[in-house]
Design a protein around this nucleic acid. Sequence first.
DNA 1: GTGAAAGCGCTAACAA
DNA 2: TTGTTAGCGCTTTCAC
Lengths: 338, 338
Amino acid sequence: MSVSITEIAKRLNVSHSTVSRVLNGRGKQYASEQTARQIRDLAVELNYRPNRLASGLLRGKTNLIGVAMGRCNSSYAGGILEGVRAACEDIGYQVLLGRAKNDELSESKQVRLLLDYKVDGLICVADGWGHERILHWLDEVVMRDLPCAVIDSRAYADRVDCVVTDDVAGAAMATRHLIELGHRRIAHVGGGDIRTTSTDRRNGYLRALADAGIASDPALIQGCAYSKESATAAIQTILEVRPLPTAVFVASDGDAYWVWQTLNDRGIRVPDDIALVGYGNLDVGLGLGLTTVDQAPQTLGAMAVKRVLNRIDRPGAPHEVVELNTQLIVRRSSAARA
Amino acid sequence: MSVSITEIAKRLNVSHSTVSRVLNGRGKQYASEQTARQIRDLAVELNYRPNRLASGLLRGKTNLIGVAMGRCNSSYAGGILEGVRAACEDIGYQVLLGRAKNDELSESKQVRLLLDYKVDGLICVADGWGHERILHWLDEVVMRDLPCAVIDSRAYADRVDCVVTDDVAGAAMATRHLIELGHRRIAHVGGGDIRTTSTDRRNGYLRALADAGIASDPALIQGCAYSKESATAAIQTILEVRPLPTAVFVASDGDAYWVWQTLNDRGIRVPDDIALVGYGNLDVGLGLGLTTVDQAPQTLGAMAVKRVLNRIDRPGAPHEVVELNTQLIVRRSSAARA
DNA sequence: GTGAAAGCGCTAACAA
DNA sequence: TTGTTAGCGCTTTCAC
């Protein structure tokens, strides 16, 4: 099927190790210019390509980076993956993609599979869900000293590198934006589940209110779990409260979409009657004209690769937490009050 | 680092081939119940995991599927990838992700890299761009008899399996929708570049007009190439024409977003003044309330895996073109005329 | 039912 | 500068 180093060696009457040295040798080429030339020419002619499995097996280095993540068809997850891919391409690594369904065992099964292919490093997108899940495979990774970066969770910062954004600060920034626009009764849809991202965002919201000396109203805070049903229920409950809030901060753009729909159905105009701010800078919010907080997913992915690579080069370096800045994207869903 | 079959064999005083037969042997297990049990128990205890590089090297089968695609952070590309991942997970394959920038050599470089890892099959997302690009690596794939499915191009249906949607039919459906709403002056933004998808969609638009006995007006047809600038320029040119069109069919949701923005800036209301229909069912259109054509990206990805798998099982089967149905998603951007 | 042996394609230490 | 040798971890005949 494809030519091997041995085939080239045979044809040229040299040993296969000479061929190996010329074609795949690291550093200086221990071979005469003449032999080297012959070998290289024939390699091109026969379209020789090194077998990565063989070299990986022998050298214990595959130039593979495993990526364990859930669904990748949101602009956030897709952005992270794109960042990882771009960074990997630059440094000659390939991405081996694992898929974790949203249950604990599926993830560790996937990680184990990635390890079976002897990836040189591992990137895990925790997505805020990962706390107990990660424990299922963390030990194995740590034991093997496998370079590993976790995106979106700092829960295991002592054992792996973490690449995160500050959800508390981001949510506070979003809330502060509303406060600066003059809003005082600001509702919050989100949180109330096990994800740290949700909890952090809620805390950021609370902190911004406190900093501004605004008392938070528990009736204006409704949990929500990334679904049409929960988002709709949350905003409906909030709309029962009197006086009505003049703004809503939703912990994710996807849920903000459903909130917007519900407001629309009730004849409540955004931003005229109620201002709306989401989180995550998803594509769905773009169409909506939704003010939101960008998490720079591509940078997140690229940084994770950088951390992993750094650890491949310098094993045993202390684990780091890289915290990326979020950015407020103001669109028409939040407008200055009349 | 991790236990090998030899390690287990040593501890149990059996040969490594016996261990291999028990742990990774296909079909019947040629081993006594007792030995097998001992081996299995120890394997679990030591957390044995087969080295996929080794078995891949020897058996010439890696359970790896290579995926060559451009950016994956749109809901379309992400959806395809997600479909591929889900299908692969079901059948015990892993996805090795290649990344092609938008130039010819980058793609073939990526494909070659995927081949270096001895993937069992290849999926390429042509995205309408792929015609000349694919030629750069097609021969190599065909020569090796590597199972290969191309998504979004039927240009090489004689040499690989193709999984496509009918862009002509989809665009015709979208246009017909506008016609049925009573529109007669329907503009089109899109096409005019080398992608077949664009050309097909324009042809679908033209066909629907013809079928309805509506003469097409060249002034109402403006090329566009997936960018803010080209989309904005296209709609601006169209808005010079008198009488104004009452509807616009844009060949992609992304461009439809920019068209919408421009209309908005000009004080033209959608759908009251001008109805708008896009293509692709991207997330950005969701927020917009944009009528569009869904291409079922996840199904596309899943079908590609199915084709590749089929060819792995039955090499030499005739190449097939799988054509998936598109679906019109009606939202508020197209409304019945008053 | 089990072991010995060969080898997938490659790298690297050691000799020559 | 080059060849020999010994594997990496595994599968698969072929004997016994």
